[in-house]
């Protein structure tokens, strides 16, 4: 089971944080900080695993990947395969790339809601449900269409409809 997904930039600013068990905001902040503390001290071109037991408790592993200015981090327990998790990060980044056409950190900064949609389609309650980026893009686009449809109908006559109801 996946416990947490994090994306943070090389300065340690979180860009996406998802925890599949409830964590208080203080605890979240602490976890992100300690993960970054270890990540930033690691050299390039070395293995992508970290000893996560000291941060997340026993039976937890952590893999990360470094893309441009961002770290993608996955925390999981022994029911997941480490290499499969690395692949999953790859799938996530590929999907982002397809959704945003050459994704960069700014896309992630400004598309908070969409990033979460993508992630939620991929990982559901800590379990991996979709690993094909094509399928993911399809689902995400459909959801976005639905979202904007439900918004656009009401955007202009919003106040009008409010009056009408009165």
């Amino acid at each position: 089971m996946i416990r947490s997904v994090m994306v943070m930039n090389t300065q340690g600013k979180p860009r996406l944080a998802k925890f599949y068990d409830f964590q208080t905001v203080e605890k979240q902040q602490e976890l992100i900080r300690s993960v970054f503390g270890v990540l930033c001290s690691r050299a390039e071109n070395i293995s992508n695993f970290l000893d996560a037991a000291s941060i997340f408790g026993p039976d937890s592993s952590l893999v990360y990947k470094h893309y441009a200015t961002l770290y993608f981090v996955l925390v999981f327990d022994s029911s997941e395969n480490e290499l499969a998790m690395l692949d999953l990060i790859q799938v996530f980044v590929e999907t982002l790339d397809k959704c945003f056409k050459n994704v960069c950190e700014l896309d992630i900064v400004f598309n908070y809601s969409k990033i979460h949609t993508i992630l939620d389609e991929m990982i559901f309650g800590g379990q991996v449900l979709e690993t094909s980026s094509t399928e993911l893009v399809k689902a995400v686009e459909e959801i976005s269409r639905l979202e904007s449809a439900s918004n656009s109908i009401n955007l202009v006559p919003k106040s009008v409809s409010g009056w009408r109801n009165r």
Partner: peptide, 30 residues
């Protein structure tokens, strides 16, 4: 957003969350 990435507590807004959840519009519900 502020709660997730800037770690501000939002438990005080729990009731408002319920209100927004019950909206009939998909985007709000989401």
């Amino acid at each position: 957003y502020l709660s997730s990435l800037h770690h501000f507590d939002m438990s005080w807004a729990a009731f408002h969350v319920v209100e927004v959840m019950s909206s009939s519009r998909f985007s709000h519900k989401k």
